[in-house]
């Protein structure tokens, strides 16, 4: 239960002095009913750093992050086959661990911004009112504060009680981020959060991710190689359910150790 994973897991360059780990994956195998998708995954995600997960379609990137907050098990027949995921040294798949608490601590943002059939304020407060006791006045202030963090407060000051579905795609994605932040997570997982957005909204989200990394550990799955290069501190490259290389982003892009990594970032394999 209290097995500690150190940051010296030979996953990064020897010269690199890594910060303390927030989340560690140890010999992880996972999959769906009929097929295994992840094979022997060892990875470390560092506190207050942005880690990008890159790889071709179907390589298991999304499965990997859904393993990290136990959302994979929501799919019938899917789950972890073996291995561990450690959050602050504690295995999140331990029988004593509460899946609800794990999901609170490790928030996730999906590719398509999904708003609930309620007002903007109620959307922000969705998880917060479940996990915390907030008075009526506190609720509004709390929602406004988190909308402020994602830069929506001034934009939506007169629309706070309007249905959330009326917002644009970029605004809805920021609303989803505000909803996750209002849950007070330690880690934020993002599954291609910009792929459904236009370039302007994407830029906005990227800036936000950089700002948030001062407070949160961020793990981002992306197809966009340039985006990974722009925003992340660390990069993991995957193919066929396996991690082929993980290191500091600058090293991955400037001096990849593996030929496959080089080919992928050069766009030679898709």
């Amino acid at each position: 239960m209290d097995k500690k994973i150190s940051s010296s897991d030979k996953v990064f360059s020897a010269s690199h002095v890594a910060p303390s780990p927030a989340l560690s994956l140890n010999k992880l195998n996972a999959g769906y009913k009929e097929r295994q998708v992840l094979f022997n995954i060892n990875a470390v995600f560092y506190k207050n750093k942005i880690t990008s997960i890159l790889g071709p379609s179907g390589c298991g990137k999304s499965t990997l992050i859904s393993v990290c907050n136990r959302t994979l098990e929501l799919i019938p027949g899917a789950g972890v086959i073996s291995g561990n995921v450690f959050l602050n040294g504690n295995d999140i798949y331990d029988t004593a661990a509460s899946a609800q608490l794990i999901r609170k601590k490790i928030g996730i943002i999906f590719q398509h911004p999904i708003t609930f059939p309620a007002s903007i304020v109620e959307n922000v407060l969705f998880g917060a009112v479940y996990h915390q006791k907030l008075t009526r006045q506190e609720r509004l202030d709390y929602a406004r504060h988190h909308l402020g963090i994602v830069g929506l407060e001034t934009e939506l000051i007169n629309r706070l009680h309007e249905p959330a579905h009326k917002l644009s795609g970029g605004q809805r994605q920021r609303l989803c981020l505000a909803r996750t932040l209002a849950n007070q997570p330690e880690i934020i997982l993002m599954d291609e959060p910009c792929s459904a957005l236009d370039p302007s909204a994407m830029r906005h989200i990227e800036e936000l991710i950089k700002t948030l990394s001062k407070t949160y550990t961020i793990i981002i799955v992306t197809h966009n190689i340039a985006q990974a290069r722009r925003i992340s501190d660390y990069t993991i490259v995957m193919t066929n359910g396996r991690i082929i290389e993980q290191d500091q982003t600058t090293k991955i892009f400037e001096k990849p150790k593996r030929k496959q990594t080089h080919e992928f970032i050069e766009g030679l394999i898709g």
Binding site: L74, R103, K104, F110, I114, G127, N183
Partner: peptide, 11 residues
Amino acid sequence: ELQQAAISLGV
């Protein structure tokens, strides 16, 4: 996806 989005908030 709606269910996944809600449950993933720990509710």
